[in-house]
Amino acid sequence: MGEGNGNATRRECFVIAPIGPDGSEIRRRSDQILNYLIRPVVEARGFVAVRGDEIERAGLITSQVLDRIIQNELVVADLTDQNANVFYELAVRHALRRPFVQLMAKDQQLPFDVQGMRTILVDHTDLDSVESAKQQLGRAIDGMSSETDIVTPMSVALTLQDLRGSSSPREAGLSQIIETLPQMMDILQDLHRHLGMGGATGGGSDDEDHRRVRSLLESLAARGGVTQDELSGLLGGGSSKFERWVEALIQRAGRNHHAG
């Protein structure tokens, strides 16, 4: 999607954003993000930026919004304040795997479901931050093309459904591994943070949560869903009992890897 010019065919970029009532702080911020960040960047690339409240055509507004989310070549979504409508509309775009860019207020935390997705953070009261966000948005748009492989939490879930329904044992096994990856990484981090700092120092000191976590990690290792390198990262700083348990898991993961 490179730079455009004044004679190029203008395309529409739909802006998903919290809008709020007239005169509210939400509306004021949304207008500033639209007018001083999004609009200059997309217009320089041949797009017209349109937000939901700017749709003029008569008819059902929800239908028109969804039509733009589905049909428009580009969507920019502002996730600030975790507005429910914004996330509903963004989920539709995620499922379609069509080009989009995510923005969010710099002082806010991304919700869990989209933490792994690149998001431009901006402080709309700081001109340097706005300029940086404009540059990031421009680079994101310029790097997009019709061949771009867009991966979202929604697309991963849909792919897993297809793999589960496959008659191929290899694809069915792949779906199990893919499905456990996010949970696996959370477990590794949790073990390193909690058990690795002395939570497993005695024979009866582990609580039920830690036992369940260790049981699940053992199951992942038995299925080849954890690599030796990932497990090795847990070593260091833990009790001798914990270190021995991790070393045993590493050996098990290695056997499963070579057997596969």
Rank of each mutant, 00 (worst) to 15 (best):
G138H: 03
E131D: 15
L195V: 10
V41P: 11
E243S: 05
S129Q: 07
P99V: 01
A172T: 05
G198D: 06
Q189V: 05
Q183I: 13
G202P: 01
M154H: 02
F14H: 09
N256H: 05
R98Y: 06
F100Y: 15
R212F: 10
E3I: 10
L79M: 06
H94Q: 14
L34P: 01
E56Q: 14
Q135G: 08
A253M: 07
G236A: 12
H192G: 15
R139V: 02
A133Q: 03
G204F: 15
C13W: 10
S145A: 14
A58P: 15
L160Q: 08
L174M: 11
M117V: 13
I33C: 02
Q108P: 00
E3H: 08
V213C: 04
R39V: 11
I19A: 02
D149F: 09
I250S: 08
H192D: 12
H124S: 13
R97V: 04
T80L: 05
L127T: 12
E56A: 11
L216R: 15
S232H: 10
D206C: 00
R255Y: 07
E243I: 07
S240R: 14
V42L: 09
R212H: 14
F14V: 00
P21E: 14
G52M: 11
Y88K: 00
T201N: 07
T62A: 14
L79S: 05
Q228C: 06
A133R: 01
Q102C: 10
A91G: 15
L74T: 02
G202R: 11
T80D: 08
I141S: 10
R10N: 00
A95L: 09
M144R: 07
I250F: 02
R139W: 05
E89S: 03
P111S: 05
Q183K: 03
D149Y: 01
L66V: 15
Q64N: 11
S132C: 01
H257P: 00
E218Q: 12
S146A: 15
R164D: 14
Y88N: 01
I150L: 10
Q102H: 12
P111C: 06
G23Q: 09
